[in-house]
Amino acid sequence: MSDAGPRVRVELTSDHEIVHARKAGREIAQQLGFSTTDQVLIATAISELARNIVLHAGGGAIEISTVSSRPGIAIVATDTGPGIRDVELALQDGYSTGIGLGLGLPGARRISDEFMIETRVGHGTSIFFRKYVP
């Protein structure tokens, strides 16, 4: 995937980087021409994905870039944490109100155009999120 657009990678080791990640995401979303509402939606989704990593995986990274084929934002959240044992459960809506794993994941998926989770128990998780400029 070749791209000329901005690409930001934020290593997530503490809660302060969550703020960096969502600010970077919002900036790129703004450059892409997303509405203010969508910018906030994207920034909030990044915040949820980043927090999952900091709280449950003990660290990882979030990479934000632009989609090359059409105007859109691509977010990849990767960690080497425990993995998600039950992805379906983690994506259930009611589950997001708990404190456990998967907090905010259903919401992030709902506002995305493309959403994919790759996870291996004991090895880690990668979450791929894309949203296109309407």
Binding site: T36, T37, Q39, V40, L41, T44, A45, E48, D93, S96, T97, G104, P106, G107, A108, R110, I111
Partner: peptide
């Protein structure tokens, strides 16, 4: 926009 995002993300 924050209120909207909160509702969207449940």
């Amino acid at each position: 926009a924050v209120a909207f995002a909160m509702v969207q993300l449940a």
